[in-house]
Design a protein around this nucleic acid. Structure first.
Length: 506
RNA sequence: CGGGCUGUAGCGCAGCUUGGUAGCGCGCUUGACUGGGGGUCAAGAGGUCGACGGUUCGAAUCCGUCCAGCCCGACCA
């Protein structure tokens, strides 16, 4: 048996996808599990990624007229009780604070004491606490629209957790807006959905489908929920962001009222929308390979890592100076609103180990600079979108002057690959039998690599959706914004306005 | 909350059936050799064997109780 090429990550994606994912998170040093089940420690490299996402998204929110604010972590229990569907949706996964003090117990340990008169809920989302503020901030139509965003952590007591994809505590942003008219609120919901889709595609190089959720998948309390859905490399769908049109449900529950031009008292129309650290999970499962993380340049904390090869040099200092010169020439250049981030890795560890550590972290460009390169006024370059051993010598001046176009080329390559992969595994399906065959794995497949996206007509019957979910574990991921041609639902024979996306999902 | 399993060094595990107070791999420290590649060799640091109780001259090992965690189901950004 031929020996397979050694990969930096074991197992490979094909061998065991879920385990591969965990190993990439570990190898890239993104995060680790915490002492509390379901929570995670986000390590510097993972945090830097999130910071880049935050910065770019925050600019996009500001550009669409939003201001940041911060609302409290703790919410009075009675706030959550105001909106019936909302309560029902979140009650099962709320962490509740009931005491405000610890006292020494009989066995020497600490026991909670000082029971609170009213329990406090750790926010699973902030509609209720922000709605409470909105009801006080909004008096007249002149106060509208009110466009607020907050960066925060939230807690949802999850049964099954995976780093970044589903953790009990996660970081996110939640936008909350109030509008005078239904139409304006609806438009805003879609506007923010499109901001997410643009961010996913242009910054993360992650192609997504925008669409609306079916009733079964809707946010508790929303009138309509929209989402962006991406395809991961195991062909499962990942909901990467949501935008909700809340109608007047929350404004009625919380008295968010204003006086219009005619002096009439009306309820505002509200929206909310969010993306979370789950995006990092999506990034990994879209681009990472069997050698670890692969970062799109626009998000990479470091664009170029320079590894000086000084062991054999007659004059190590000369090589270091040469490296610093290259770094300086790169840093003065800009790439999508940031100067080029360069790291010179002069750690005293073995060359191979050093090189592989940057491969696993997904840095877009690695260069090695030794005596031979310096003599040629060149660098030895490797790109993370190509195999780890695919390296070549490049003249220094050419390398420096083409750096932004090289980074852009990597960015585009990643997007193109991900888009091709998704399209290759998206199929139009017209009969129920074909649909069932599509989602039934061939016997003996070592790990569940799922069929992909099935586009079928659908009449929208929720009992059909329910049955398919039970039979196949497949759900409607969304009703795409681009509906296409009307047709006939293969499950009911009824007419359908357009095709919907079915897939297994995270 | 139902069903299965596991707690021994930072991580991953062996030892338990047939009691005699701990071992392996990785990692870590130091040194040597090496040097466009995650290498080789040597020396070293690190554990009240999940907790409590019982049996015993003696318990990681046998018995009991408890605690914690993991996996599979229902729920989910």
């Amino acid at each position: 048996m031929a020996k397979a090429a050694k990969t930096a990550i074991t197992p490979t994606r094909a061998e065991n996808y879920p385990e591969w994912y965990q190993q990439v998170v570990r190898a890239a040093d993104l995060a680790e599990n915490s002492p509390v089940r379901g929570c995670m420690v986000i390590k510097p490299w993972g945090c830097a990624l999130w910071e880049n996402m935050q910065r770019i998204l925050d600019d996009m929110f500001k550009a669409t007229g939003h201001k940041n604010a911060y609302f409290p972590l703790l919410i009075p229990k009675r706030f959550l009780e105001k909106e019936a569907e909302h309560v029902e949706g979140f009650a099962k996964e709320c962490a509740v604070v009931t005491h405000h003090r610890l006292e020494e117990g009989p066995d020497g340990g600490l026991v909670p004491a000082g029971e609170l008169e009213e329990p406090l809920v750790i926010r699973p989302t902030s509609e209720m606490i922000i709605g409470d503020a909105f009801s006080r901030w909004i008096e007249s139509y002149r106060d509208l629209p009110l466009l607020i965003n907050q960066w925060a952590n939230v807690v949802r007591w999850e049964m099954r957790t995976r780093l970044f994809l589903r953790t009990s505590e996660f970081l996110w942003q939640e936008g909350h807006t109030a509008h005078a008219t239904e139409q304006e609120a609806r438009e805003h919901t879609i506007r923010m959905l499109n901001v997410y889709a643009t961010f996913a595609r242009d910054t993360m190089a992650m192609p997504v489908i925008t669409g609306e959720k079916t009733a079964a998948e809707r946010f508790p309390g929303a009138v309509e929920t929209f989402c962006i859905e991406g395809m991961m490399q195991d062909r499962k769908a990942l909901q990467a962001g949501t935008s909700h049109f809340l109608g007047q449900n929350f404004s009625k529950a919380q008295d968010i009222e204003f006086l219009d031009e005619n002096g009439e008292r009306l309820n505002a129309w509200t929206t909310s929308w969010g993306v979370s650290t789950r995006l990092i999970g999506g990034l990994i499962m879209t681009h990472a390979d069997d050698d670890g993380l692969v970062l799109p340049p626009r998000l990479a904390p470091v664009h170029v890592v320079i590894m000086p090869i000084t062991f054999k040099a007659d004059d190590p200092e000369k090589i270091m100076n040469y490296c610093h010169k290259i770094a300086d020439d790169l840093r003065v250049q800009a790439f999508h609103g940031r100067h080029i981030e360069v790291e010179i890795d002069d750690r005293d560890i073995r060359g191979g180990e050093k090189n592989w550590s940057w491969v696993k972290k997904g840095v877009p460009i690695r260069i090695e600079v030794g005596p031979r390169d310096m003599a040629d006024d060149a660098v030895f370059m490797a790109r993370r979108d190509r195999p780890a051993k695919d390296k070549k010598g490049v003249a220094r001046t050419e390398f420096v002057s083409s750096i932004t176009s090289t980074l852009e080329d990597i960015q585009q390559t990643l997007l193109r690959r991900a888009t091709e992969f998704r399209d290759e595994h998206t199929h139009q399906i017209d009969t129920e039998q074909d649909f069932r065959d599509f989602f039934t794995a061939p016997a003996g497949e070592p790990t569940p690599i799922h069929a992909g996206f099935a586009m079928t007509h659908f009449s929208g019957d929720s009992d059909v959706e329910e049955k398919i979910k039970n039979d196949l574990g497949v759900t409607v991921r969304c009703i795409p914004t681009e509906l296409g041609e009307p047709g006939t639902c293969p499950f009911t024979g009824k007419p359908s306005a357009g095709r919907v996306v079915w897939a297994k999902s995270y």
